[in-house]
Design a protein around this nucleic acid. Structure first.
Lengths: 179, 179
DNA sequence: CCCGCCATGTAAAAGGTTACATGATTTA
DNA sequence: TAAATCATGTAACCTTTTACATGGCGGG
């Protein structure tokens, strides 16, 4: 259970759960490159990928076995553990809290949840919609508050900021409704 | 001329240019806290602020003089240099390249350009609009391309990604038009 | 007299980027 | 036989976060 949002590690868990036999670093790296839809959303350099795999193993969310092939450096086959599955499932059910997280975190959740469990996908979209509607409402309240302050350049700027956030949140809500 | 987008340092330069007499770290720190409209958009912890001030001085965009007051630790008064002014002006004229940068970088540009030069502000809004319209067009082309691919889950996901990006870009464009 | 504000930072740890090291194997 | 691909990483560097260290000064 990572402390913060470790998006890359959840994505690795997602790839490993799709691939029941497990997979190794170089293989996983391809998904985060130019080919494939995941790489369009989330990039990951080999250095960081190997780093994340080590950390995931240290905390017990994946396990590895070495596989010798000819005389080249042995592949390390990583498999997701029960704990890893539980953590990924929990993550895939939780909506993101802020509008700005839709663009990256939510898209990654959507990518995996669509493949693993379409029913869970529609639940996720619903709870995400509810979350963003609350955000929208809270921004509207702030906007009303700002409208009552004395007119000055700072207030005007804050109104512009709130207008942008409302517009971005409304756009995300419409998009979610269209899914 | 910072290599990357060092948003916090441009914000510091902006505060120093408003305040012709110069200002010191603790004073600047208030702008990045809870009070004031800049802090609503960009947070900066004291540690990083002092770090940025040192770096800005090292590269010659600001200069400092120590000011003794009673027996407490001397304030360091920072002033922006000619080079600093030039760099800030250049930055304030350039639109951001990606839609995702509107939320943070563009808002900071807007904050300062509105106070320093309203005429420059409307020029910035115009060039930013042109930039985002090109982004929108490029996304539309990608969307058409994706529509012609064979229907499969990967293509569907990519279409969702593009639909989100188009929606976010269109929302930013409408907001800019409303300014 | 104690607490919070003024004012400067440093230290440690975490997280991320970029580039390179190593060496076998497959393909052109 | 040269280049690209397979497969693992390390090293150096930069940025950010969090917490603390230091000490005077002003108000209740």
């Amino acid at each position: 259970m990572p402390a913060r949002e470790r998006l890359a590690e959840y994505a690795i868990l997602g790839l490993l759960i799709e691939d029941g036999q497990g997979s190794h670093g170089y293989d996983l790296a391809r998904h985060f490159g130019d080919a494939g839809p995941l790489g369009e959303v989330l990039r990951l350099e080999p250095g960081m990928l190997y780093h994340h795999l080590k950390r995931l193993e240290r905390v017990g969310l994946v396990a590895s076995t070495a596989a010798q092939e000819g005389s080249r450096p042995p592949k390390k086959i990583y498999r997701i553990t029960g704990e890893g599955r539980a953590e990924l499932t929990r993550w895939l059910q939780s909506p993101v809290v802020h509008t700005r997280e839709i663009r990256l975190e939510f898209l990654v959740k959507l990518f995996f949840v669509l493949r693993l469990d379409p029913r869970a996908a529609s639940r996720l979209v619903q709870t995400q919609l509810e979350t963003l509607r609350l955000v929208h409402q809270s921004l509207s309240v702030q906007q009303s508050g700002a409208a009552e302050a004395a007119p000055d350049p700072d207030r005007d700027f804050m109104q512009n900021v709130l207008a942008l956030r409302l517009a971005q949140t409304a756009a995300a809500i419409s998009w979610l409704e269209s899914l």
